[in-house]
Every structure is written in structure tokens, then in C-alpha cells.
């Protein structure tokens, strides 16, 4: 397929993506709402029998080593917290998409999901370091979704992974995004933005997909977008990427205007991300 055909095919696939469950959409949207609490989460989860059973399964999983079994959903939600309930809901609603093998990036099944989860954890940990207030739960959700577009465009990148790497090393493309655009007319950031729009998710989530590699280009929510930008890089540096494109992106050094993060702060954040990831990896990956 040529570039125009690829672009049309990607647009068609996005338009045909199944919608998220109502409970997953509501939970993802909740993070962007200023005032909400655990009671709102409980209310949404309670209306979805499958999600309720999943949340109870997660809260009682061996990894948490609880002394007693939790039966009440209110109790489960308060123990897990908003981020882990959102993770459970997204895994349930879009697990096939987010855990699929990314042939176009030479990434195995599950790699995108692991990268998304690690980025989400890093984003939540970085949020308090932003110079303007950034909501940690919102940052977490943005981290979970930021690379969504790869799940769709991967199919059209076909066997390009090795060639793109080589072309970037030879200076023919500034980064992986530019290569994606050259082949498909669209990159994974823009594709992710379109998927969020299709799913009618709140604007900050869609914008964090669109601008996570170039946060300076965004008109709003720059603090949040720089948090997701750095969280993505932290996940890649820690070895959890999505195959051939891992680390083939540019650090926007202007982050210093938006976050207070020195060498010691970064080291501690990496350590904390590793610890939290180890805790939830067995449950969700």
C-alpha cells in the first residue's frame, strides 16, 4: 500500500474500533473531572457485574497477600485505589487491543501493555513534581493510554522496524514519529488522539496521546503533558518499551520549566517506579 492508502486504511480501522464499555469510559473520564471521590468509582463499578467481579479478583489476588478475602466492592475499591480500578477496567475493556503483538514494531504480545502500565505509574509519581498542579490520577490514566495509537498503526508498518531504525541512525529521520508519518501519513500520537476522540474520552486524555513526544506543541495542559512525556522516557530507559522504537524519540529539555526534577529526584523516581511495577506486574501483565 502507498502512503495515501495506508492513511485511509488507518482512519477506517479507527472508525471501526469497538467502543469501550460504558463503565470503562466513565472511569477514564472521571480522572479528568475536578471533583470526584471513591464513592463515584464505586457507583460506576457497581453497575457493571463483570467489572465488579474483576475488581474483586484483583483485590484478592495472591500478589497482595491479604489475610482475609474481600467481598464488598466498596472495600475493594478503597484498598485498590482509583488507579488500579481504572487499570482493571481498561484491561477488561480494551485488553485485546492494548496487549496485542505489535508486528510493525517487532514487539511481542503484552509489551505495549507493560510499557503503558509502567508509564502510568511513572506519570503518577512525577505529577507532584510539576510546577503547576497536575492531578496524579489523571496523569496515571494518560500514561495508560498514551501509546494507544501504536496498536492500530502497527499493522500497517509491516516489516519496517529494522529499516526505520537504520534510517534514524543514518539521520534520514529525526525520530520514529517522523518515520511513521513518512510511511503512513499519520504517526502513533495522532492515531491515539483519534482513538480517544472515537471513544469520546475527555480532551486531556486525547491531547496527551497527541503531544506526549512534543509537549511544547500543545496549547493547554502543558504540565500534564510534560509529565507524560518524561514518564514515557523513564519507562523506556528502564527497559520497558514497545520494541524497535524504544528510545528512538527526543527528550524535550524544556521540561525543566514545567517540572522540578534533578538527578537525585530522577533516580528516586526510577527506583519507586520499579518497586510499584514489580507489585502490580503479576496481577495485570
Amino acid at each position: 500500500m502507498n502512503r495515501q492508502e495506508n492513511e485511509r486504511a488507518v482512519a477506517r480501522q479507527i472508525a471501526e474500533l469497538p467502543l469501550l464499555s460504558s463503565s470503562a469510559s466513565q472511569l477514564l473520564a472521571l480522572g479528568a473531572a475536578a471533583d470526584h471521590g471513591l464513592a463515584d468509582i464505586v457507583r460506576i463499578v457497581k453497575h457493571d457485574a463483570i467489572l465488579t467481579s474483576r475488581v474483586l479478583k484483583v483485590v484478592n489476588s495472591a500478589a497482595y497477600a491479604r489475610a482475609v478475602e474481600i467481598h464488598a466492592i466498596e472495600h475493594a475499591v478503597s484498598l485498590l485505589g482509583e488507579d488500579m480500578v481504572v487499570t482493571t477496567a481498561l484491561r477488561e475493556a480494551a485488553g485485546l487491543l492494548l496487549a496485542k503483538r505489535l508486528t510493525g514494531y517487532a514487539a511481542e504480545a503484552g509489551e505495549l501493555w507493560r510499557h503503558s502500565l509502567k508509564t502510568a505509574l511513572a506519570a503518577k509519581l512525577l505529577a507532584p513534581k510539576a510546577r503547576s498542579p497536575v492531578n496524579g490520577e489523571l496523569a496515571f490514566t494518560c500514561g495508560l493510554l498514551h501509546d494507544l495509537g501504536k496498536a492500530v498503526i502497527s499493522d500497517y508498518l509491516e516489516q519496517t522496524a529494522g529499516k526505520i531504525r537504520q534510517a534514524i541512525e543514518q539521520g534520514r529521520f529525526p525520530d520514529y514519529l517522523a518515520a511513521e508519518r513518512a510511511i503512513l501519513g499519520i504517526d502513533h500520537a495522532e492515531a491515539g488522539h483519534k482513538i480517544c476522540r472515537r471513544w469520546q474520552l475527555p480532551a486531556p486524555l486525547a491531547e496527551s496521546c497527541r503531544h506526549h513526544h512534543q509537549p511544547a506543541a500543545a496549547e493547554r495542559w502543558q504540565g500534564l503533558l510534560y509529565v507524560v512525556h518524561l514518564a514515557d522516557i523513564i519507562a523506556m530507559l528502564s527497559g520497558i518499551g514497545t520494541g524497535a522504537d524504544t528510545l528512538q524519540y527526543r527528550l524535550d529539555r524544556d521540561y525543566e520549566r514545567h517540572l522540578e526534577l534533578d538527578e537525585a529526584g530522577l533516580n528516586s523516581t526510577m527506583l519507586a517506579v520499579e518497586r510499584e511495577f514489580a507489585q502490580v506486574e503479576d496481577i495485570f501483565c
Binding site: L247, L251, R253
Partner: peptide, 10 residues
């Protein structure tokens, strides 16, 4: 490894 355009901190 490092990311492209890295600074000292990263």
C-alpha cells in the same frame, strides 16, 4: 542506553 537529545540528568 539513553534517549535522543538527552541532558545530564536523564
Amino acid at each position: 542506553a539513553n534517549v535522543m537529545d538527552t541532558n545530564n540528568t536523564f
